[in-house]
Design a binder for these strands. Sequence first.
DNA 1: CCGGATCCTGTAAGATACTG
DNA 2: CAGTATCTTACAGGATCCGG
Lengths: 115, 115
Amino acid sequence: MKNFHANGKCPIRDVLSRLGDKWSMLVLVTLEANGTMRFRDIHNAIADISQRMLTVTLRILEADGLVSRKVYAEVPPRVEYQLTRTGESLMPHIRTLVDWAMQHMPEIVESREGH
Amino acid sequence: MKNFHANGKCPIRDVLSRLGDKWSMLVLVTLEANGTMRFRDIHNAIADISQRMLTVTLRILEADGLVSRKVYAEVPPRVEYQLTRTGESLMPHIRTLVDWAMQHMPEIVESREGH
DNA sequence: CCGGATCCTGTAAGATACTG
DNA sequence: CAGTATCTTACAGGATCCGG
């Protein structure tokens, strides 16, 4: 039987721990849709994320090399975020997932109401 | 600017709240790899899931119409799970995401070590 | 053997206030 | 403007017992 133990090499667990949190995909999709964005722009685009969670999420995405962070030595300060090459290469796959969700959400909602 | 507010119609939030939890994708992938499985089989395939969380996850997937649940009136009891049509239609998209993860994980790990 | 029900806890996430 | 720091809360998830 095929199994998926947590032996440290399971790609499903990896991708989940990266993208499965509450905000990462949303930030990635927002950045893809708008290109380069400042912190405030992202915060406005995703209204109900807290400042703290946006910072945390961006730091993780930056550490993973999916998002680049550019600080300008100005007053007032300016920080710009955008997808890296690696980040961009991920987006088509997320899009197919989102397309599937849009297509099948009606039947899922219907199924859920029967339970 | 394009945004993604939680107006109840955002497909990204929908797909995330469905598949973003800790175990759903793992259960789906396990069922796809092995076909029809009993509760105990799934529990063995995913060693570190608790009995409770496997029950909860299967109930959600069943309610969403992604997994079917068949109870046999036997002693000892037997319950078989398998993917529905809808569930199967989702799997190719998950697979592309997993493939991407396998391909890019080395550079992600490397990037992470630099931070 | 398959799971439901209950209780409990750690971590993720929100609110708020403050700084370079 | 773009964050930190701190406190607090909510919920996911684990342990355990029980029942058909």
